[in-house]
Measured scan of single mutants.
Amino acid sequence: PKCKGCFKAIVAGDQNVEYKGTVWHKDCFTCSNCKQVIGTGSFFPKGEDFYCVTCHETKF
């Protein structure tokens, strides 16, 4: 599969995040607002966007 963030291949051994059939490298899975890496931490999906806890609390 290819990462939705950088469009490069995800190979065995890469740390990745999967959500609803889409996959990202862990470092490519970032907050849509502040761009900080969410990685495998908590996040809030809103449509096609993903927000870290801090930005979600501030924005919504």
Rank of each mutant, 00 (worst) to 15 (best):
G21M: 06
E48L: 12
D27Y: 12
F7K: 10
K46L: 12
S42P: 10
A9N: 01
P1Q: 13
K2S: 15
I38N: 09
W24R: 10
C28N: 01
K8Y: 11
Q15W: 01
T54F: 10
Q15S: 10
V53M: 09
G13D: 13
D49M: 11
F7H: 09
K4M: 13
T54Q: 15
C55M: 00
F7C: 13
V17P: 14
T22Q: 09
T58I: 11
T22Y: 07
I10G: 04
C34L: 00
I10W: 04
K35R: 13
D27E: 08
H56Q: 04
I10L: 14
Y19C: 07
G13P: 09
K8G: 09
D49A: 05
V11E: 09
D14C: 11
E18K: 04
F44H: 14
C6H: 00
H56D: 05
K35Q: 06
N16D: 10
V11S: 10
C52N: 02
I38G: 01
C3L: 07
K59A: 12
P1G: 15
C52P: 05
E57G: 05
S32K: 13
C52V: 00
D27A: 05
G5Q: 05
T30F: 05
I10E: 08
C52D: 02
P45L: 03
T30I: 14
F43G: 08
V23M: 13
K46A: 14
C28G: 02
F60P: 14
V23T: 12
P45H: 06
E57I: 00
G21F: 09
K35L: 10
Q15C: 01
C3I: 00
D14E: 13
V53N: 00
D49F: 14
Y19R: 12
V11K: 07
F50R: 08
K8V: 07
K2F: 15
K35D: 10
V53G: 13
T54E: 13
Q15P: 12
F29C: 13
V23Y: 08
K26M: 10
K59S: 12
Y19A: 13
Y19T: 12
G21I: 07
T54A: 05
G39I: 02
K4Y: 15
E57L: 02
K2Q: 12
T54L: 06
E57P: 12
S32D: 07
Y51C: 10
G39Y: 06
F50H: 02
Y19F: 03
V17G: 03
C3Q: 06
N33Q: 15
K20G: 13
N16T: 13
K59N: 03
P45A: 09
V17I: 09
E57S: 09
G39L: 05
P1A: 15
C55G: 00
N16I: 04
Q15D: 14
